[in-house]
Design a protein around this nucleic acid. Sequence first.
DNA 1: CTGAAAGCGCTTACAG
DNA 2: CTGAAAGCGCTTACAG
Lengths: 340, 340
Amino acid sequence: MSFEERKKTRVTLVDVARQANVSRATASLVLRKSPLVGSETRMRVEQAMRDLGYVYNIGAARLRVERSQIIGAIVPNLTNPFFAELLSGIEEVIGATGKVVILANSGDQVERQEMLLRRMREHGVDGVILCPAARTESALSDQIADWGMPVVQVLRHISLGLDYVGVDYAAGMRQAVDYLASLGHEKIAFAVLGPIHSAYQERVDGFRDAMLSRNLDPRILIHFPTQLGEIANATHLLFDQATRPTAVICFNHIVALGLSAGLHDRGLTIGRDLSLVGFDDVADAEAIRPKLTSVATGPVAIGEMAARLLVERIGNPDLPPRRVVNDTTLHIRQSCGRPG
Amino acid sequence: MSFEERKKTRVTLVDVARQANVSRATASLVLRKSPLVGSETRMRVEQAMRDLGYVYNIGAARLRVERSQIIGAIVPNLTNPFFAELLSGIEEVIGATGKVVILANSGDQVERQEMLLRRMREHGVDGVILCPAARTESALSDQIADWGMPVVQVLRHISLGLDYVGVDYAAGMRQAVDYLASLGHEKIAFAVLGPIHSAYQERVDGFRDAMLSRNLDPRILIHFPTQLGEIANATHLLFDQATRPTAVICFNHIVALGLSAGLHDRGLTIGRDLSLVGFDDVADAEAIRPKLTSVATGPVAIGEMAARLLVERIGNPDLPPRRVVNDTTLHIRQSCGRPG
DNA sequence: CTGAAAGCGCTTACAG
DNA sequence: CTGAAAGCGCTTACAG
């Protein structure tokens, strides 16, 4: 029934060809803007397409040529504004190439990620931008190679064999530590959260190295709950330490948001009673008061770059793996002062 | 060349069938879990699939059956966390049905939206969840009907002929106004922003009706710039009015964030010098200090509902159009007090 | 520039 | 339960 209907309704290339009095091959050439077709013919065909309301069937084309014009993007968390900005960058440049992006959320779960990768392969994606779920084994990279699937890792990496676009977290930590040290801080805490992955490790290592290189104690590492709402209530963790910090560097903007609220609740003034440095610098940094001094990582630009790399990789699968590690910028605003 | 390679590498259903010593038809039946196949046969085929690393080709299947297992989602703005939460709800329920979602950003531009719809049709999407760009003409709905494309409108609507999932903005406004009035406020401003669309209009109308029904002056409507960063600097607009408001209702959480920062900058205490009510209630509401009293609209739930409706509509295109209008909840926190 | 033919990987009746 | 055949809508050489 619906099968019969469609047979009648669906306009195909032969319909167009017939209407324009050309062969199917010619119609196909017009479609792909081949210069082989004369302009009168071309216009006649294009007119026929409009008259008939023809819609190109990418899926059918895909069966012949090896391009689905679909790429996949897998992120561990959609509600985190940081990833939303990343996606926005990805969507923009992929969209500009005429491709389309399939979005998926791994929830930082390895099995779910596996399922999503399979599903994307079934859809014949031309490539995937992957922010690997925490605890992803590096063996996944071998699988991906076996599949012959173009992949660029973004923000986190599991293998040197795949393209990677990320952030120089170590440099960011150095900027934060140097700045606080220049203000006279010596007891600097690092407030972390979430599961362990390369970006986590690089920040922690970067913090330690930066502290050590200034002969400061790098051991004040404080773990906070993942939920924004709970962070404020856990602010006391800052003061339960053997040595009470005078400054805190935040793992990301979620921690910064939570702590700035929690410190407020305790009647403490940020920048005077305790200095706070954020990380990631999403729009909120400007909106919090006092304005948050923060290490900017530029998620939109990272998304754009990852998309560009993926497009290149698809065009040229034999390129050696590339790593693009973006610089960070310390945006000095108002949340830091000299230690009390 | 790459064509030749593929010919060798790509494992198809005939390869599986051959390996398992069955016909292609049988292999296909196993794929779709038909009960017609005996369990020994089924297992043999499944083993062959694993051995050969077979990947189902949805695109090829799509050519025969009319289901691409792809749905589209078009939003006007990806970086707004509100839409990120919406998407997260959509992705979750669509993903759970085994389908995949193509994401696109219209940037609130009608022409871009048109291009995206065409692209999605070319990809043979089974349906689209659309938050229509501002200034979309209701004629689009006729087009969509012509195409026979299942569409559900979300958050904004352009036509009664299409499914719609949204928010009872009028009720939300009433809750906000009633609450402020109960505290004694009479001079209540509505701080708005952005282009005009149904959700904008419903909030403005809702505000006016709520104010009028309490015999309050509904004319303090103040337009703010769209960029979060600029809102704080425009805070003075609140005090340039003929009658200075004692309370402000915010169009969305962006305005609330900007104003709460801007008021802080002017040395004003929110809840004492001026009361503030937010709208949308994304995670930030809890993180701002004082905690923001806000009308919650539940974007994740809306996304989930829209996805469910779309799946139903795809399964049953002849259903009459449905409208689901979610209730709002006033979350009373700390940003309101009695008028000075 | 154009036509006829083969084929991409699947599903769907239709016989057995 | 299984096999043979046709067809979904396109592209790609290959001849003319």
